[in-house]
Nucleic acid binder design. Sequence first.
DNA 1: CGGTATCCTGAAAGATACTG
DNA 2: CAGTATCTTTCAGGATACCG
Lengths: 117, 117
Amino acid sequence: MAESAATCPERLVMEHITSRWGTLVLIALLDRPHRFGELRREIGRVSEKMLAQTLRTLERDGLVHRDARPVIPPRVDYSLTGLGREAAERVRDLAHWTERRLAAVERAREAYDAASP
Amino acid sequence: MAESAATCPERLVMEHITSRWGTLVLIALLDRPHRFGELRREIGRVSEKMLAQTLRTLERDGLVHRDARPVIPPRVDYSLTGLGREAAERVRDLAHWTERRLAAVERAREAYDAASP
DNA sequence: CGGTATCCTGAAAGATACTG
DNA sequence: CAGTATCTTTCAGGATACCG
């Protein structure tokens, strides 16, 4: 997750929430709690490394709750905190808007590209 | 602006909108149209390259309108399109939420860091 | 004033292999 | 199952210089 240096603190939080995997994790968890492997399968082509990193960052920010049960085989459930739900609802809105308007954006691009050789 | 390869098309639009400079540009334009130099000063420490690139991407996506007047010295005004206004309002909400909740996030981080050596 | 063009680097993402 | 460790590649973004 993007972590560059000279950044205002809000930017950092925004980046965690709107990052590629952050967005998908938050939206998935808005539906219901998920285990690590469920998230992995649902999101699709995410590496274990990136998923783990994303979850840790969101947990650290207080957006995601991690419930690790000391059983064998291990079982870990992730869910949204109250804070996380607020954030997730907003990214979901943005994501849904993007889906709804994607066609319009693509038309704009074609027009732009047609006008500039 | 982030442009990696194997990405679903909505992700690309999301990234343009929520990118570091994209967010700031959209929020500034939500207030009123701006000239290039005004954006540059208002946003602060953005390079001309990144600002120009961000504006071109947003224009191409149909979110920002570019009005270049053929005068000397050149004068170019940027404003939001209808589509851009919809997007800008949503990022602004997210940005405002982040500002409001920043303290809570920072408290969560302290707790997390205190718990894990 | 409002940009382009070019080069360069640090950091982030992916692949792969391994583990409690 | 749920991760870590390590290596490699990629590329966004800054610095700098120049232009219509």
